[in-house]
Design a protein around this nucleic acid. Structure first.
Length: 580
DNA sequence: CGAGTGTGCGCC
DNA sequence: AGGGCGCACACTCG
């Protein structure tokens, strides 16, 4: 699959504004404000740099945005954009130097560039982004990048030039260029979602907690139902002092009553037959809810009817997002009912069904697998074609192929899958072999996996020696297979993350076109293969259409005309609990 | 006593 | 039995 995605990511509204060459508007920090530079896409200055006092920045950005529609370039979206959003200013496009630097340093596509071969510098140390902008970060720490004899504006311009050069030198600049645009669009979206917040009803949340746990207890006490369950566990085990929150304590008590267990994991406990099991599992379930998303969480994270998690674009090696605090990407189903739209608004929830198998089919150019997913659930498609005998088996086998299952049901089903879809399975197998040899693998758009660490390499070297101890050889092999499972999954998970970023970026542009003043349908949540839009009720259908169109665009951006279908299920709901 | 590690479980 | 995470608590170590 060498053909390069042709289209540009139209993260520029409808993209039909005659935007050919880019104007880059480069922002960098100077002592009393920001330095603003306008550059052409050849990196040549279009005018003299100017210093903008900090108080004037939002106005200047707003004016330039509407007049020039530039691509904003800054060291870190999280350090600049939240303050602009707070001042009511939005921008269409950006280039996040920190995120793009990280991609370009690792990518096999830009491995020969000066940027990739240079020794680590300040841009690599920025891998950890500054914590969420509180309005102070904007002009804080101005020396960070300008260390040494270069000013920060110079350092920023130089970095942009180095990045553009690295992209220009690649054989297929469209791939990596699209990735950088999508990654940067993701950074804008993350900041906007934090700014807008996910509509959250503390009242509904409290009701759910009270129903399941009992009324909110005083500080330091267990809620009533948890205390009752704790008592039930203690009495079933004849251990009146037992702390059910202590796995070691629980394990000892279980063994004392004659149960043979290695841990207190729920899938192990589930297999046991003893009166303690039911209350113990229930205790764990509710205790988990209380700790992770209970009243304390609510007090910490819900303000004015909004949940504002701190998203971390590019926070996962594969390109997925992470979050910092709030656990936004792990919202348990139990509390999703608290996500409710404002009056007169609704939630459009959409998810890409079986995204990863579909991405795999397209990555591998496996027409048979792509065809199995056309017009239907791809797992059902496998059953209909007689590859496996049930949807559950299809799912297990497919996930096993992408995660590297070797044993169990998934392991047993793999050969059938490999026979039916040799190209798709061949692709993940190749990725695994590459990882086992310590090589990098690369996603559709050019994000490459890291190389294994020193310890891994040393272990492999030790095992390869003439006089290697058998134990060393075994350990090295296990580690090699482990890294192979990582790289196997990396290509699929990472390419799926790219699809999702393009989906969201394309959707963002379409939503902007639907805005009527302040009644602006907006993204409020993103979860790997799922998006949520908060929209005025009367715009729900337009938004749904935008979601579907954007998915089509994402597919074309990544895979051109390859006939793969990305099935999107949508729901227009008054509560997140009612989606799927 | 705080920092770091381990356990367990939530999400995809 | 197989990838990627974050988080809270218990527990250990210095």
């Amino acid at each position: 699959m060498g053909e390069e995605p042709r289209a540009r990511l139209s993260d520029a509204g409808d993209g039909g504004d005659g935007d050919n060459g880019n104007v880059y508007a480069v922002l960098s920090r100077v002592p009393d404000g920001a330095c603003l530079d306008l550059l052409g896409d050849d990196g040549v200055a279009l005018s003299d740099a100017r210093v903008v006092p900090r108080a004037d920045l939002p106005g200047v950005v707003r004016e330039l945005e509407s007049r020039e529609h530039p691509r904003w370039v800054w060291d870190d979206t999280g350090g600049w954009y939240p303050s602009l959003l707070a001042a009511g200013v939005r921008v269409d496009r950006c280039h996040d130097l920190r995120l793009c630097h990280a991609i370009l340093r690792q990518s096999e596509l830009t491995a020969v560039s000066r940027l990739a071969s240079a020794p680590p510098g300040p841009w690599d140390e920025m891998a950890e982004p500054p914590s969420a902008d509180d309005g102070l970060a904007l002009f804080g720490a101005p020396e960070a990048l300008g260390a040494g004899d270069r000013s920060e504006p110079d350092a920023t311009r130089d970095e942009l030039a180095a990045q553009l050069a690295a992209v220009a030198e690649t054989e297929q600049p469209g791939r990596i260029r699209l990735l950088l645009a999508a990654e940067s669009a993701g950074a804008l979206i993350a900041a906007e979602m934090t700014h807008d917040g996910l509509p959250w009803s503390a009242e509904v949340h409290d009701r759910v907690l009270t129903e399941l746990l009992g009324p909110r207890p005083r500080f330091g006490e267990r809620p009533r139902k948890l205390e009752e369950l704790a008592e039930a566990v203690r009495s079933a085990l004849g251990a009146p002092e037992l702390n059910p929150d202590s796995p070691a304590d629980v394990l000892r008590a279980l063994r004392r009553v004659g149960l043979t267990v290695a841990s207190t994991r729920k899938w192990e406990l589930r297999e046991l037959d003893h009166p303690v099991i039911e209350p113990l599992l229930e205790y764990k379930r509710l205790s988990r809810l209380l700790q992770a998303n209970g009243w304390v969480w609510m007090d910490t994270w819900i303000r004015d009817g909004r949940f504002r998690p701190d998203y971390v674009p590019g926070g996962v090696v594969t390109g997925r997002w992470a979050t910092r605090g709030g656990g936004a990407l792990q919202l348990p189903r139990q509390v999703r009912g608290a996500v409710v739209p404002d009056p007169g608004w609704t939630l459009v929830v959409a998810d890409a069904a079986q995204l990863e198998p579909r991405v795999l089919a397209a990555l591998a150019g496996d027409r048979a697998l792509a065809e199995a997913g056309r017009g239907t659930d791809i797992y059902q498609g496998l059953v209909d074609r007689g590859v496996v005998d049930s949807r559950a088996h299809a799912k297990s086998a497919m996930l096993g192929a992408m995660y590297g299952a070797t044993q169990g049901e998934a392991g047993r089903l793999m050969p059938r899958l490999a026979r039916a879809y040799p190209r798709a399975i061949g692709l993940v197998e190749d990725a695994a072999r590459a990882g086992e040899r310590g090589l990098k693998v690369t996603t559709r758009l050019g994000r490459s996996s890291p190389r294994p660490g020193e310890a891994w390499l040393a272990a492999q070297a030790r095992a390869a020696a003439e006089d290697a101890a058998p134990a060393d050889v075994l350990r090295a092999r296990a580690q090699a297979r482990e890294w192979g499972r990582f790289t196997r999954n990396f290509v699929v998970q990472g390419s799926a993350a790219e699809w999702a970023l393009c989906w969201m970026a394309a959707l963002r542009g379409r939503l902007a076109a639907l805005a009527h003043g302040e009644r602006r349908p907006h993204l409020v949540f993103f979860l790997h293969d799922e998006v949520m839009v908060h929209a005025p009720v009367d715009q729900a259908e337009e938004v749904r259409g935008a979601v579907l169109d954007a998915a089509g665009e994402a597919g074309r951006l990544l895979f051109g005309d390859f006939p793969v279908e990305f099935a999107i299920s949508t729901a227009v709901v008054d509560s997140y609990a009612d989606a799927k």
